[in-house]
Amino acid sequence: MNASTSNDRFCEELTALLPRLRRFARGLARDAADADDLCQQTVERALKSRQSWQDGTRLDAWVYRIMRNQWIDEIRARTRRAQTFTREEEGTNVGRPGDQDAENLVEIGNVGRALARLPDEQREAVMLVLVEGFAYKEAAEIIGVPQGTLTSRLGRGREALLRELGEIA
C-alpha cells in the first residue's frame, strides 16, 4: 500500500473518531472549553506523530492514549500553577429554580458532579470502560498500567459513583 493511501485513511478515521474524542475529552476535562482545547491539541499531536501509528492497529486506542497523556501533562501544569486552589466550591451548584426541566437538570448535574469529584485516575478508568466501552486490557494499555491496577481504580470509581448516585442509579 502506498503512503498517501494510508495517510488518507488515517485522516479519514481520525475525522470519524472526532465525536468520540470530544466525549472522552469532556469527561476528562469537565469543562467544555478545556475539553475542546484538549481535543485540538490531541488532533495536532496525533497528526504530527501519524507515522508512528501502525496501519491495521486500533486508531482509537492510539489517539485516546495521546489525549490521556496530554491531559495528564495539563493537570500537572495546573497543579503547579495553582497549588492553593481547592475544588471545594464545586458541587455547590443546584438546579435553577423555576426551570421546567429543573428536576432533570439536577439529575444531569448530579452525574456530572459525581464524575468530576472522582480522582483523575479513577475518572479516566471509568470513562474508558463504562463510557467508551474499552475492554479492561485495552483500557489498561491506554493508561499504561497493569490490568489489575486498572480494575482496582475502576472498582473504586464505580463504588464512589454508585454511592453518590445511589438514589437515581
Binding site: T15, L18, P19, R20, R22, R23, R26, G27, D36, C39, Q40, V43, E44, L47, I108, V111, G112, L115, V126, L130, V131, R158, L161, L162, L165, I168, A169
Partner: peptide
C-alpha cells in the same frame, strides 16, 4: 450507572463539531 454516564456525556457526540478540528 453506565446508562446515566452515557446519558450525561453522549449529547457531546451530536454537538456541532468545532471547525478547527476538521480543518486541521
Amino acid at each position: 450507572l453506565r446508562a446515566l454516564l452515557r446519558g450525561h456525556l453522549d449529547p457531546v457526540l451530536t454537538e456541532t463539531m468545532p471547525e478547527s478540528l476538521t480543518l486541521t
